[in-house]
Each structure stands twice: as structure tokens, then as C-alpha cells.
Simulated assay, not measured.
Amino acid sequence: MDAPASTRSALTDTSQQLRLLIDSVRDHALYLLDPEGIVCSWNPGAERIKGYAADEVIGTHFGRFYLPADRDAGEPQRLLRLAAQQGHCSAEGWRVRRDRASFRASIVIEPVLENGELLGYVKITRDITEQWQAQRLLRDAQRALRQTQQFETVGRLSRGLSHEFNNLLTTIGNALDLLALRVGSDPRAHELLSTAQTATDRGALLTRQLLAFSTGQTLIREPVDVNELIVESLPGLRRAHASGTLLGTELAHDLPPVCTDALQLQTALANLVANAVEATADGGHVLIATALEHRLDPDGEAGQQRRYVTVSVRDQGRGMPVDVAERATEPFFTTKDIGKGSGLGLSQVFGFTTQSGGFVDVSTTPGVGTTVSLLLPALEEPAP
């Protein structure tokens, strides 16, 4: 059946075509700006994405959609200048909806010219929050997988070395104990023996750390309430670090249990808190926080997510440069002075977390602080 004459007229009239085209676009905000950035038109897609009705926006500056920091820095004006100079401008960043919620936006700005004169701009905005979050989760999962593969290789070597060193140190320690009975009252000999025994004890400690890192240890895995474990550990952690640093907690409610070794989790927590307190030696706050997160499973099928209970230790210390942060979990890598660190602290934490089926996330900013998060798989309830 033929379309009515009014419909045919609307589809052949140029201005009507343009109006119908713009009004039919629902997944893109498409609107006109004058040369100063004042909104002159507003399509249904813009209302859906940004939450504003046309009469709330037309006549106002489009900078209202930007984060306050970007607005104060002149980002909206910079993008307009760039579009005018280059004939096109595309960018990506955070924007603000009417309800003040932020979203990730991909934007394009095109200048509107007539006889070389700038009449205004066409601006197109697309909400890419879901894609951005998916890419971020994928990057996290890929990084965790790479770390796991790297540590599996180094761990196999470390297991063999740790057993060999343990045998050697046992022999040396026994020999030093026998010598201590025969040196008599020579103070210099006692001093040398004491130094040698201290070095042997330190070597034994490093061997135990190396064995723990290599995941050669046997975990006694059982359901663990992470919040309960942190609350029970807190008094001891505070006594161990009686300094000007304040140790607090921010624990999420109704967390599911995790299946891991409670003693090893306590050891990992103590290790992270010790590092955080040392980084905040001049005073400040160290925060132990828990949360429930949905992340891509590094060992699962493509795109498969699962729930992780996150245990984070956050400090207000010096932070780390990017190149140092990337190596923070490498075995034997340390920024401490000789004799003050083995470089196995975070590696040991990583080994335990990986053996529990999880992974470690390190977030740091120089001059602001560092957050180290253990992501342990939540214990899922059996299907009814």
C-alpha cells in the first residue's frame, strides 16, 4: 500500500528529512552549539544520555556536562578551538548527567562553516561506559594471567633452590652450635660466631619466604570470614606498629566467605600493613578495607566473570613511580636499603593469593599513596 501524501512530503522535504533523522537517533546525543559553545538544539538521544529535557539545556553552555575540574581547566573551550583549527575534534573522557552521575563519553565535534565563516559546531556524544568498564576488566584479567604464568615459572625454580639452601643452612647452623661449645672465653670468637649465627638465621628466614613464595607450601583451605579475621587481627597489628600511623578499617557488610588458609591470610595482611606503615613513617593513615567486586576470571572462559572478596591495604605514603609499581611483585625486587628487605614480601603475598585462586592488584600514585588489593574468589553457594 502506498504511503500517505503527507508522509511522502515529509520524506522528500530536506528540512523535514534532517529533523526526522536527528529525532530518530536515540543512542547518540546530537546537538548544535553556537561559536561560544551555547546549546542551540537538543535531540532525544541527548535527553536519554544526559537526562536533561531540551528546555533545561538550550541557551546554556555545554560546559555544564563536564566534570568541575575539567571545566575549571578550560577543557570545553579547548575542544572547540581544536575543532575550529583542525576541522574535526574527537576525544574521550568523563561527563556528568543531570542526576550528577558520571559516565564515560566518546565525543566528536565538527565546525559548521558557511562561506568560510564559523556559524557554530555539531557535537555528537556517545555513552561508552559499559565498553570502557569491560575493557578495564579485560586488562586486569590479562595482567593477572601474565603475572600468574610468570610466577609459576619462577616458583618451580625457587622450590628446588629453597630445599637445597635449607639443607646447607642446617649443616652450617649445626656446625656453628658445636663450635660455640669449644671456643672457650675468647670474646672475639664469640662475636664472630654470633654474627655467623645471625646470618644463618636470616638465611633460614629467607629460605622459608622463598618456599612460601614458590607456592610449594600446603594451604589448609577452609571457609574464612574475611571481616571477622581482620577484626581479630587488628589489635595485634596495632601493637606491632605502635607509631604515629593510625590504622583503621572500612569493612563492607554481608561479604560471602572465601576458601583459603586463614593463617596465611593473616600473614599476608601483616606483611601488607608492615609495608604500608613503613611507607607512612612520617604519620598518616593506613586503611584496611574490604569489598565485593565482579571481575573477569583470568582462568575462566572468555568474558566470564565471578565474584571476588577484595582485601585492600591503603597508605598515605610516598607512592611508587610506574616503573617501580610494575616490578613490585617481582621476587627479590626491593627499593629498601641492603639488609633491610629481601624483596620477597609482596612476592610471598602474591604466591599465597595465586594459590588461593585469586590475584593481586597494585594501585599507586607518587606523593599520594599506594593501595595493594588481594582479590580472593568468593565461596559460591551450591545451586538448590
Score class of each variant (00 low, 15 high):
Y31M: 06
A270Q: 04
G343N: 03
S106A: 15
R314I: 13
P35H: 09
Q131K: 10
Q348W: 08
V183D: 01
T215G: 12
P298H: 01
E117K: 15
T310G: 01
V57D: 00
L193S: 04
Q131S: 15
R239V: 14
A3R: 11
I128C: 04
A204H: 10
D315W: 02
Q197D: 12
V362Q: 02
Q16V: 03
T364H: 06
G283L: 08
L205I: 12
C40Y: 02
Q142H: 06
A289W: 02
E75A: 14
G367W: 00
S214V: 05
S214L: 02
A53L: 14
A180Y: 03
N43E: 08
G283E: 07
I172V: 15
L169E: 02
V362P: 00
R188H: 14
V112M: 10
R306M: 08
E278T: 13
A105W: 00
S9W: 06
V108D: 05
G93M: 13
R19W: 04
L269A: 02
P187I: 05
P382T: 00
H28C: 12
R307V: 05
R188S: 10
T129A: 04
A378W: 00
R188L: 09
D13P: 00
S356I: 04
P382N: 04
A302Y: 07
E250C: 09
S312H: 04
V231W: 03
L296Y: 09
R104A: 13
T267D: 08
W132I: 01
E114T: 14
Q147F: 05
P68E: 08
V154Q: 10
E278V: 09
A175L: 09
D27K: 08
V183R: 04
N43T: 07
R188M: 14
D140Y: 08
L237A: 04
Q135Y: 12
R64G: 10
E232H: 09
D261C: 15
E293Y: 02
W132T: 10
T280S: 10
R143K: 11
V349P: 00
A212W: 02
V226R: 01
F352I: 11
W132P: 00
T200W: 03
G317V: 06
A189F: 05
G357N: 01
I124W: 04
R78I: 07
E381C: 06
L179I: 06
D2Q: 12
L375F: 10
L145A: 11
L205H: 15
H241A: 07
T290E: 10
